[in-house]
């Protein structure tokens, strides 16, 4: 039996290593360009470690059992009549419970951090209409653009409006997403941490042109932003 346990653990470790390689060799997440996404990526890794362990345990037991206890088709004996094991059953109720509650707490903390607006965020209104985004900068005299420009390291609050049907404002590199819903106002916070060009994507099916409902987001330095605003207002 001891030899069996060693084999089982070995299979588990092999599977665990393989899955871990899949998790780290590919870059599964886009480069984070916001404080909010940094925090989300932390929970992502928490969940990933948890998943690797659980998957490896289950897969190892399945592989080991089939490998060890497979019998030919004409075998007509029965296995040992094991009906259960209270200790084991309590353990596999309690351990997952602790894990998911831990994940829940971490998630709730991040959610609240990502939802806390600091002092005077940059107010941007994002208006979704089949099939284009418009952005209104109410802090700077309500000019409207089709391109989203944000100053780096300054929190921005997007207030969403939808003209016709539901759209969803999403910048994959910001890790933040929120539906724009006709009749109600929704909002989300983004604090860009990286300058560059990113894609604004509509993530909620909104009709024929849904796939093409995209805009450009540009994160620039404070000085460049002021310059851009001046240009726009002129």
């Amino acid at each position: 039996m001891r030899k069996g346990i060693v084999q089982l653990v070995a299979i588990g470790v092999v599977i665990g290593v393989l899955v871990t390689l899949v998790a780290v060799l590919f870059q599964w997440l886009p480069t984070s360009a916001s404080e909010e996404f940094d925090r989300i990526q932390d929970i992502y890794w928490f969940a990933t470690i948890m998943s690797i362990v659980i998957f490896s345990v289950v897969a190892a037991v399945v592989v080991y059992s089939v490998w060890t206890w497979r019998v030919p088709d004409d075998d007509d004996l029965d296995g040992p009549p094991i009906h259960g094991n209270t200790g084991l059953e309590i353990a596999w109720t309690a351990v997952p419970a602790i894990l998911v509650i831990a994940l829940g707490i971490v998630s709730a903390v991040v959610l609240s951090q990502n939802g806390e607006a600091g002092n005077r965020p940059l107010e941007v209104k994002a208006i979704g209409q089949q099939f284009a985004w418009k952005f209104e900068y109410s802090d700077y005299g309500d000019f409207t653009t089709g391109e989203l420009v944000l100053p780096v390291n300054r929190e921005a609050r997007f207030t969403m409006e939808a003209v016709d049907v539901i759209h969803s404002f999403w910048v994959p590199n910001f890790g933040q997403k929120m539906d724009a819903v006709p009749g109600i106002e929704t909002s989300i916070l983004v604090t860009p941490t990286r300058t560059g060009e990113f894609a604004v994507v509509c993530a909620e099916l909104c009709g024929l042109g849904h796939a093409t409902m995209r805009a450009k987001a540009r994160v620039v330095t404070r000085a460049e932003f002021d310059e851009w605003v001046k240009e726009k207002r002129a």
């Binding site: 289950v58 399945v62 497979r70 040992p80 094991i82 094991n85 596999w92 998911v100």
Partner: peptide, 26 residues
């Protein structure tokens, strides 16, 4: 997240059913 608990119970119980069985891999 709590739904993971009863679902986990089921998954672990199936794997435990395999344990020391006489497995017909059809």
């Amino acid at each position: 997240l709590l739904i993971a608990i009863p679902t986990g119970i089921k998954v672990f119980s199936w794997t435990a059913t395999l344990w020391r069985g006489r497995i017909h891999l059809n």
